[in-house]
Computed example of a mutant assay.
Amino acid sequence: MTSGAGSRGSSGPGWFSGTELLLAVVLLVFTALAWLLTHSLAAPGMRLGILTGTRPMASSGFEWTRFGFFLLTWLIMMTAMMLPGITPFTIGMSRLLRVRRAGTGSVTILVLGYLLAWLLTGLAAYTCLRVFDALAMAGSATAARSGAAVLVLAGLFQFTPLKQWCLVHCRSPMALLMRHGQRAVRSRRGALLVGCGHGAYCIGCCWALMVVLLAAGMMSLVWMAGVTAVITVEKVLPYGRQASYAIGALLIGVGLVLLVLPGLVGTVA
């Protein structure tokens, strides 16, 4: 009787309990809502970038209202793009927390920690976007070649040891779970730090692709979906390292073409 009750109360390695399936559904629902909210918040100018032929209106100085709106939209975008990728990690953590009888709120804190890590990159992303705005005002050829340089640099980053090191951790979140799971079990502060740690690996892996997104069109659902697909291929599908190299080669190739023929940017846009 005891073993039967235990088997009903726990999940094997290849099975998900009802609670874990519900958690996965909740995360995916939040993802869908974030995509819809991104679409509703996106102004026409925010769907374009220096790789898509935009000429934004100049703005002087640092505007807190604009920065606050950017941070809000950045957080929503990161929720839309990154939440599906951490679903297996979150389910694994919820299983560990349940076995150790830790507070159920720790799972929420874990996800918030992950998103907090991405939110903290918002200042760098905003600065990058303002630089791109200035380049766009300098002329279409300058903007196009700057966007091409972004593609080349992002492609080169795909071949660096830092990229591959972070990618290994992103592809194996259970390694992080086994190494730091006890910290999350002990306290909600620990869960927050574990979530931030996993977010830091993802930032190290994906930051160059995010710069490409800013150059292509920050809130364009098409470009968001494209970058999300690239990130998913790297993190989930087999042969992640080879996929990363192929993506890098493609970025470098397109970037070199645009450096030679910057007029293609205006044609495509």
Rank of each mutant, 00 (worst) to 15 (best):
R55F: 03
M77P: 05
A24S: 15
C202R: 00
A246H: 09
V194N: 01
G122R: 05
L176M: 08
R95L: 09
I76G: 13
T228Y: 06
I76L: 11
L176N: 04
R241S: 11
T54S: 05
I247G: 02
V230F: 06
T228P: 04
E63T: 03
L151M: 15
G266C: 08
L259E: 07
M174H: 08
R171A: 13
F16H: 13
G263V: 06
R189I: 00
V254K: 13
G18M: 14
P84D: 07
S10P: 06
G61D: 02
L112Q: 06
I91L: 12
V211L: 15
Y114P: 02
L22A: 15
Q182I: 05
L21R: 14
G92L: 10
V111K: 04
M210W: 08
T127W: 01
G53P: 04
S60K: 07
W223M: 04
I252K: 02
D133F: 00
M1K: 09
L264P: 11
V194E: 01
V211R: 01
P262Q: 00
T52E: 05
L256W: 09
A58R: 07
F159S: 10
G263Q: 11
G199N: 01
S187T: 04
G204H: 03
P262E: 00
G139S: 14
A143C: 11
F159W: 15
M1I: 11
G139E: 11
E20Y: 07
H169Q: 10
A175I: 03
C166Y: 04
L36P: 03
V211A: 09
M46N: 10
S3N: 10
V212Y: 00
T160L: 05
W223K: 01
G217H: 05
F132V: 04
S17F: 11
G122D: 02
L213V: 03
H180S: 02
S3E: 15
V107L: 04
G105N: 07
R186F: 07
F70W: 05
A80C: 11
G85S: 10
L176G: 05
T65L: 14
T142Y: 04
R241L: 14
L33N: 13
A225L: 10
L22R: 15
S17L: 12
Q242S: 14
S59Q: 13
A208K: 00
L256Y: 08
I203N: 03
V131N: 04
G92C: 04
T87Q: 04
S146Q: 05
C170H: 02
A200F: 06
L71F: 13
I76M: 13
T142S: 10
T38N: 12
R189M: 03
L221A: 07
R189N: 04
P173D: 03
L83C: 08
S220Y: 01
V233I: 14
V111S: 09
L112A: 13
S172T: 09
L110A: 04
L72N: 09
S244D: 08
L120Q: 05
M1G: 15
F157V: 12
G217S: 10
A144R: 09
G197C: 04
G266P: 08
V99M: 14
L120G: 13
L72T: 14
G263S: 09
V168L: 07
L129A: 09
G113F: 03
G240S: 11
V211M: 12
L83V: 12
I91D: 05
S94N: 08
A191T: 03
T2K: 15
S11V: 08
G122F: 06
C202K: 00
G197M: 01
M78W: 06
L21Y: 06
L177K: 09
V152P: 06
